[in-house]
C-alpha cells in the first residue's frame, strides 16, 4: 500500500517534469507555469490554514512581498536579467516570512472567524501601501531588466524552478502532516481550548505554522515578478489571489495533502485557459462563480474526499460507508 502510493506520487512528478518536453508551445507552457505556481501556493496555504482551521485570506500579502523583493533587489542590486535572478527567489520567501511574524503575532490573537476578517484588513493595508508608497513605484509599478532568453527557451527554466518550489511545498506539507507539530495543528483545528489544556503551546504552534506557510508563497511571488518582468501593486496584491488560493484548497479537499494540488491543477489551468479564450471578463466571472457554487454544494468536503468515498464504496462491500467525512480528512493515507 505504502509502496503503491509512492509510485503514484513519483508518476505524477514524472508527468509534471516531462510536460515542457512534450508540450513546447509557449502558450501552454505559460499556463503550466502559473498552474504549478498556484498549486505550490495552495499546498502551502493548506499547510497552515487547512491543518489548523485558521482560514487566511491575506495570502497575497506574501505573494506581493516576494514579488517586490525580487523587483527591488534586482533593480537596486543591479542584477542583470537572467539566471542569476533565481537566487533572489528564496530571499523573497524569507522576506515574506519576516513579514509574517508580526502579522501573525497580531492576527492570531483572535479566533477563527475574526482571524479571516483581520487577514483581509491586513491585505488592504499592504495593497494601499504598495499603491501609495514611493519606493514601490506607486500605481505604475516596477519594471525589471529584460531577460535575454528567446522563444520556447524562455519558459522552460521558469517552469522547472516553479516545479522545484512545488515539490518543496508538497514535501514540507507532508513532513509537517506526519510530525508532532502537524498533529498539534490538527488538534487546534479540532478543539483549540482542549489542545491548550493538554499542553500544546497553541500560540507558538500557530505562529510557526503561519510563518512557515509564507515562505513558499513569497518565493512564488518572486518568481512571478521575474517571469513577467513587470509588476503592478494591484496585480501582486490581488484580493482575487487571496480567495483563489483558499478556493483551490476547498475545491480539492481542505486539510488534505492531495486536495490543494488537485484543486490548483483544475482551477488554475481552467482559469488561465478561459481568460485566454474568452476575452469577455464578465462571462468568465459568471462561469467561474457558478462552477464553484456547484462544487461546494454537491461535494462540500472537496473532490479528493468525494472521489475516495465513491471509490471505496465501489471497491468494498460498502461496510465502511458510514465513516464520517471529517474522519477521512484526518486520515494519514491522503
Amino acid at each position: 500500500m505504502k509502496l503503491r502510493q509512492s509510485a503514484w506520487w513519483a508518476l505524477g512528478l514524472v508527468i509534471f517534469a516531462l510536460f515542457p518536453v512534450v508540450v513546447t508551445n509557449p502558450f501552454y507552457t505559460t499556463i503550466g507555469i502559473f498552474t504549478v505556481i498556484y498549486m505550490g501556493c495552495a499546498t502551502s496555504w493548506n499547510m497552515f490554514s487547512g491543518y489548523s482551521g485558521y482560514v487566511s485570506l491575506g495570502t497575497a500579502i506574501f505573494y506581493g512581498c516576494g514579488a517586490y523583493t525580487m523587483a527591488l533587489v534586482s533593480i537596486h542590486g543591479h542584477i542583470p536579467g537572467g539566471a542569476e535572478q533565481f537566487w533572489v527567489v528564496p530571499l523573497g520567501g524569507l522576506v515574506a516570512m519576516a513579514i509574517a511574524v508580526p502579522l501573525g503575532a497580531v492576527a492570531l490573537r483572535v479566533r477563527r472567524h475574526t482571524f479571516v476578517v483581520i487577514t483581509i484588513a491586513f491585505f488592504f493595508v499592504f495593497q494601499l501601501a504598495a499603491i501609495n508608497a514611493n519606493f514601490t513605484g506607486g500605481p505604475a509599478g516596477l519594471s525589471l531588466e529584460l531577460i535575454p532568453w528567446q522563444g520556447d527557451a524562455y519558459n522552460t527554466p521558469f517552469y522547472y524552478v516553479a516545479l522545484a518550489i512545488l515539490v518543496f511545498s508538497v514535501v514540507l506539507s507532508a513532513l509537517v502532516r506526519r510530525s508532532r507539530f502537524g498533529l498539534q495543528l490538527l488538534a487546534i483545528r479540532d478543539d483549540e481550548d482542549r489542545a491548550l489544556g493538554l499542553g500544546v503551546k497553541v500560540k507558538a504552534v500557530k505562529l510557526t505554522g503561519y510563518t512557515m506557510s509564507a515562505f513558499v508563497v513569497g518565493m512564488a511571488g518572486a518568481l512571478y515578478a521575474m517571469f513577467l518582468g513587470q509588476i503592478y501593486p494591484q496585480f501582486v496584491f490581488d484580493p482575487v489571489f487571496d480567495v483563489t488560493i483558499a478556493l483551490m484548497a476547498f475545491l480539492g479537499g481542505f486539510g488534505t495533502l492531495l486536495g490543494p494540488l488537485v484543486g490548483g491543477l483544475i482551477l488554475e489551468s481552467s482559469q488561465q485557459w478561459l481568460t485566454a479564450n474568452y476575452s469577455n471578463g464578465s462571462l468568465y466571472l459568471i462561469l467561474f462563480g457558478a462552477l464553484f457554487l456547484i462544487v461546494v454544494l454537491f461535494m462540500p468536503q472537496g473532490i479528493v474526499v468525494k472521489v475516495k468515498e465513491v471509490w471505496s464504496k465501489r471497491t468494498s462491500t460498502g461496510s465502511d460507508a458510514t465513516q464520517a467525512p471529517l474522519a477521512t480528512l484526518g486520515s494519514e493515507s491522503l
Partner: peptide, 17 residues
C-alpha cells in the same frame, strides 16, 4: 463559517459578472 465566505464570494462573482 469558512465555507460561507467562499460560497458568498462565488455568489458575488456571479452577480458582479
Amino acid at each position: 463559517t469558512a465555507m460561507s465566505i467562499l460560497v458568498t464570494y462565488a455568489i458575488s462573482l456571479v452577480i458582479e459578472g
